[in-house]
Design a protein around this nucleic acid. Structure first.
Length: 826
RNA sequence: GCGAAAGUGGCGGAACUGGUAGACGCGCUGGACUUAGAAUCCAGUGGGAGUUUUCUCAUAGGGGUUCGAGUCCCCUCUUUCGCACCA
């Protein structure tokens, strides 16, 4: 007796057949409708982990479903192969990132094949290879030419451990997202992409028909649009204006001081007149050295120093003190704040601490506010007081009125401010895409000409020997000649953030071997946008936002003709074990290789897809995997034992069908309908698989199929044969084998998407549940043809129902067609 | 603090538009087969009461709407995630 089905032989066999027939090679020229399924490409860290298996099993299920439906499906794969881990590994082990990265890619590739994912390897991209990164440099040049790439000196998040700059998105809780080291502030010349130029358009989510609300909310939050007013204060005794941004123009008459950050240009200027050891100077130095996160943590005490200077409030000519503080951010709004202690909690705390005057301008409904008695700021709406001609006005109404009035009198203007900052793309690391810039003493910043692209990353670099940018160690690379004047010049030694590489790879897949362009518009127009994108939620404000930005930029270059790159997005959950994400440090990793060797790829996939809906976390369970394996074995045994019945020809079969067989036929067609709609309408694979399991139970409920007449055997055979056609999406290898075994010479997907016959879903009898006052009191089986009145009569006649309506007046009888009868009796 | 999502058996989860709560799987209990185990098969499996028909409680907690609420509304609690001195 066979204990376990021979998954190993079967899986190898079908992988080879798929491969030989190139069924997953997508055609760029076809009249078939296209479907582009994309899972986020992996960082080649060494071997596939369960997270990858889970993620790609989802993509593969969708891909095979669409293939079966007759679409021209593209499901490509590649590697996000630049990045710091490879470089850090190389430093530790005295190797080279190129070698270890290529080795890892080879390992991963073998594992992709072992699981049998239907990927189009002809389109493979790897971001660290010159044929790919050449075009990243090309895009950088385009950004620069369009004024969207620029260099500025700024305070940046610096990780001492990784020796590089981090984008705001890469700082989590004041720590580096990769190594958990505390991030500090460092002033550096950096390259930026002007993503803020697209802020408004990035807030338009109307083209993403199927994005999780959560991701949209996170991006909205991240972009952080706020409407407000710019108000121009003037510096006392000069004509310098100091603009501030506020969302509370209604409180302008209550401004009693102005708060500036130490980075503010005016402050730097004033410090020149100060002694080096002056209190103000020392304070500014201290705050500047503190890292941004410490400064912006909510529990950090607000501190400041009076500058001795005053600003003039344009609305009433009031002289207000100018303070340097640690709680104002230079890179939000105008980098200056009008402080209204009575109506802003931060300003309130600060003013109390330093004994700065307070003035009420919004009175509460009880009219009880007195500055001396306040223990916190009053931030609710109210009635304006001490506000000149606006006294008595409702504060909410006055926002508009006051800012209009200020605008008319040139005191300020209504504006919009975003929280989103420009994208810092410079990285002071080796293993990334070189920025195609040459610095010339005569010509300044010069772009590397197109014919010299790509700027190749030199191999002979010294890693980890110095704390400076590694590329500086390759003098023959750094020192070059200016493309404009031919004089000696130096190359830019920063490389690009790897998020630049991953911001356009989805378009490269459309035309992966183009040597003239990143991709042709023709191919991009055919394939883009991606129909279904799959990846982790952790990229909500990073990769997914950058890719949207890049896509719009490519559109503005005329290269693509859609507004958004990803029509549908599925954010899959993590694979957890013992409630925690699988990770080496926690020691709860399960190696896919081991599981595939022991149970086969189909089992792992079925387990992953069955354990929970795709967007939720999957809790790993050894027993659950065995359950999936048991299920596939039961299917196998069914075919093995009943093969003769299943593969017979029933074209001339005739005979009477027993009620049990009619039930089985119902189950067959119901299951087809259920599985297809679970995939198509809900993308819920766990319930689809559950439906097949239930159907299998129904089949094995027929104890002696060999005793059935031919017509019944035909129904039995049909009920079995839908299994490979429905399980193909989740367990493709065993499905192909069963399909072939039962006498079919096509591949499963070539047989097309199986359809259900609605005629077999019509039941001759329907079970109605009877409720009395909302509680279930009985059931009746009624012919489908019964009228409402007949159903009512039968329901009221039910014995158990009688007990509950006895002695009561029937007030209402509600009949819900095909479901239940509800009796209201008092 | 702001924003979002979620809370259902011992566990993962189902219940799609308000209509039999707990599909399916895991685990567990009993039985069959076996010298024994593994595997497989059969039966049972939310709590309580009852010999059975059946009754009753139960979807974080408390209210409400409704003939009927896991599902809709209000309040409270808990968890997870994102943002967080953004003026």
């Amino acid at each position: 007796m066979i204990m376990e089905y021979p998954f190993e032989i079967i899986e190898k066999k079908w992988q080879k057949i798929w491969n030989d027939k190139k069924i997953f090679s997508a055609d760029n020229n076809t009249n078939k409708p296209k479907y582009y399924v994309l899972s986020m490409f992996p960082y080649p860290s060494g071997a596939l982990h369960m997270g990858h298996v889970s993620n790609y099993s989802i993509g593969d299920a969708i891909s095979r479903y669409k293939l079966t439906q007759g679409f021209n499906v593209m499901q490509p794969m590649g590697y996000d192969s630049f990045g710091m881990p490879a470089e850090n590994f190389a430093i530790k082990n005295n190797s080279h990132p190129r070698l270890t990265t290529e080795e890892n890619i080879a390992i991963m590739r073998k594992q992709f094949d072992m699981i049998g994912f239907g990927l189009d390897w002809d389109r493979e991209v790897s971001t660290c290879r010159p044929d790919y990164y050449k075009w990243g440099q090309w895009f950088f040049k385009k950004m620069y030419e369009k004024g969207l790439a620029y260099k500025k000196s700024s305070f940046v998040n610096w990780c001492d451990d990784c020796q590089t700059v981090l984008a705001n998105e890469q700082v989590e809780d004041g720590k580096c997202w990769r190594c958990d080291n505390v991030v500090r502030q460092k002033e550096l010349e950096q390259w930026f992409f002007r993503i803020t130029e697209y802020a408004e358009e990035l807030l338009d989510f109307s083209k993403m028909t199927d994005w999780p609300e959560r991701v949209i909310a996170m991006q909205k939050n991240w972009i952080g649009k706020s409407y407000g007013t710019r108000i121009d204060f003037t510096l006392e005794g000069s004509d310098t204006t100091i603009p501030v941004f506020t969302t509370r123009p209604d409180t302008i008459f209550g401004c009693t001081f102005m708060a500036l950050p130490p980075e503010h240009p005016l402050v730097s200027e004033w410090l020149k007149d100060e002694a080096a050891d002056s209190d103000l100077n020392q304070f500014c130095q201290k705050v500047l050295n503190e890292d941004k996160i410490m400064r912006s943590a909510e529990d950090t005490t607000k501190e400041g120093r009076f500058t001795g200077r005053f600003a003039i409030n344009p609305v009433n000519g009031d002289k207000v003190q100018i303070w340097v503080t640690n709680y104002v951010l230079m890179d939000y709004g105008t980098g200056a704040v009008m402080a209204v202690p009575t109506h802003d909690q931060r300003d309130f705390e600060f003013a109390r601490k330093y004994d700065i005057p307070m003035k009420i301008v919004i009175q509460n409904p009880e009219k009880t506010l007195v500055p001396e008695e306040m223990t916190e700021a009053y931030t609710e709406p109210g009635i304006l007081v001490n506000s000149g001609k606006f006294d008595g006005m409702d504060s909410d109404v006055s926002k508009e009125t006051i800012s209009n009035w200020m605008q008319e009198n040139n005191m300020g203007e209504q504006t919009i401010t975003y929280r989103l900052r420009d994208w810092g793309v410079s990285r002071q690391r080796y293993w990334g895409n070189p920025i195609p810039i040459i610095h010339c003493d005569h010509c300044g910043t010069v772009l590397v000409p197109d014919e010299d692209l790509p700027v190749q990353l030199p191999d002979n670099v010294q890693l980890g020997k110095t704390t400076q940018n590694p590329l500086l160690s390759v003098s023959e690379w750094v020192n070059t000649t200016c493309p404009k004047c031919g004089r000696p010049a130096r190359r830019e030694t920063d490389t690009m953030d790897t998020f630049v590489d991953s911001s356009w790879y989805f378009a490269r897949y459309a035309d992966a071997h183009n040597t003239e362009m990143p991709f042709s518009s023709e191919n991009a127009d055919y394939w883009l946008p991606v129909d279904q994108y799959i990846g982790g939620i952790e990229h909500a404000c990073m990769h997914l936002l950058y890719a949207r930005f890049f896509h719009k930029f490519m559109r503005d270059l005329g290269m693509v003709h859609s507004d958004e790159p990803f029509t549908r997005l599925l954010t899959q959950g993590m694979v957890t074990k013992d409630g925690a994400k699988m990770s080496k440090s926690k020691g709860n990793v399960v190696d896919p290789q081991y599981i595939v060797d022991r149970f086969g790829a189909d089992t792992v996939r079925v387990f992953m897809l069955f354990a929970s809906p795709p967007e939720k976390d999957v809790e790993w369970s050894d027993e659950g995997v065995k359950g999936a394996f048991r299920f596939l074995n039961r299917i196998w045994r069914l075919f093995d034992e009943r093969l003769e019945i299943i593969s017979a020809d029933y074209t001339k079969a005739a005979g009477h069908l027993s009620p049990a067989i009619k039930e089985l036929r119902y189950s067959t067609h119901f299951t087809i309908k259920k599985v297809l709609s679970d995939i198509e309408d809900r993308m819920q694979f766990n319930t689809a698989i559950a439906a097949v399991m239930e159907h299998l139970n129904n089949i094995t409920g027929i104890k002696h199929p060999e005793q059935l007449n031919d017509a019944e055997k035909a129904v039995f055979a049909e009920s079995c044969l839908i299994i490979p056609r429905l399980m193909y999406f989740f367990a493709p290898h065993i499905s192909e084998e069963l399909w072939a075994m039962s006498g079919h010479d096509t591949l499963v997907h070539e047989a097309g998407l199986i359809q259900w016959n609605p005629a077999f879903l019509i039941k001759s009898e329907i079970t109605y549940v009877i409720q009395v006052m909302g509680k279930v009191r009985g059931k009746i089986v009624v012919p489908t043809s019964a009228s409402q009145d007949e159903i009512k009569t039968l329901a009221l006649a039910n014995e158990n129902v009688q007990k509950f309506i006895e002695g009561k007046t029937i007030q209402k009888v509600i009949v819900i067609p095909k479901k239940l009868v509800s009796i209201v009796a008092k």
